[in-house]
Computed example of a mutant assay.
Amino acid sequence: MNFEHLLVVNDPDNPLVTPLTREELWFGLLCRAEDSRPFLPGLDACTIVERSDTELVRELNFGSVVIRDRVTLQPMEWVRFDTERTATHAGGSLTIGIEEPAPETMVLRFHYRTTLTELSAADDIAYSEFVKSAYHQSDVDTLRVIRMIAESGHIQ
């Protein structure tokens, strides 16, 4: 299954939303890479097992389930999370990109690729739509946490 959507970060036509700088947005994405616990409800631990300038290999503990992923960083542009497929996890990838489609406008593009199929059976379509909705809500929460980080200067 492929799924992609945008979240508006800065909209010059909406004075109710405090704009974020690219640096603040990138810092928030780095926080998600370094420790995803504030971003993923139910995540008990996030352990970095390997590190380089542009990659992290992590183990994510959701109770007794351990998921391993590789985080690739293109500084100030995008972050990609590649999750290994296991007996308990479908695997796939999420890329979160920072885009500026117009002056003073900034968006986050979320692109998911999973091993889930999008078949024509009604149950499969309903399940696929449920997964997309859950991804979208998780991404809204990610932006909310990034805004909290920007306001406070750190994860609370």
Rank of each mutant, 00 (worst) to 15 (best):
V8F: 15
V9S: 03
N10D: 14
P12R: 13
D13K: 10
N14A: 10
T18M: 00
P19L: 07
P19G: 07
L20R: 06
L20P: 14
T21Y: 10
L25N: 07
W26H: 15
G28W: 06
G28H: 10
L29D: 02
L30C: 13
R32H: 15
R32G: 13
A33W: 04
D35H: 12
D35T: 03
S36K: 09
F39D: 02
G42F: 07
G42A: 14
G42V: 09
D44P: 07
C46N: 15
T47M: 12
T47S: 08
V49C: 03
E50W: 03
L56F: 08
V57S: 10
L60Y: 02
L60D: 15
F62A: 12
S64Q: 07
S64N: 10
V66G: 06
R68G: 05
R68M: 00
D69L: 07
D69I: 06
R70T: 07
V71D: 05
L73Y: 00
Q74I: 04
P75F: 06
W78M: 15
R80N: 11
D82W: 00
T83Q: 12
T83K: 02
T83C: 02
T83S: 02
T86L: 07
A90F: 13
A90D: 11
G92Q: 06
S93T: 08
S93P: 08
L94A: 01
T95F: 00
G97N: 13
G97L: 09
E100T: 11
A102Q: 14
T105G: 05
M106V: 01
M106Q: 10
V107M: 11
V107R: 10
V107A: 05
L108N: 04
L108K: 10
L108H: 10
R109K: 14
F110N: 02
H111K: 13
Y112V: 15
T114N: 02
L116I: 05
E118L: 12
L119H: 15
S120Q: 12
D123Y: 15
I125C: 09
Y127M: 15
S128D: 08
K132D: 05
S133W: 03
A134Y: 01
H136S: 05
Q137E: 05
Q137Y: 06
S138F: 05
D139L: 02
D139M: 09
D139N: 06
D139F: 08
T142C: 04
V145N: 05
I146C: 07
R147V: 08
R147Q: 04
M148G: 09
I149L: 07
E151I: 13
S152G: 13
S152H: 03
H154R: 11
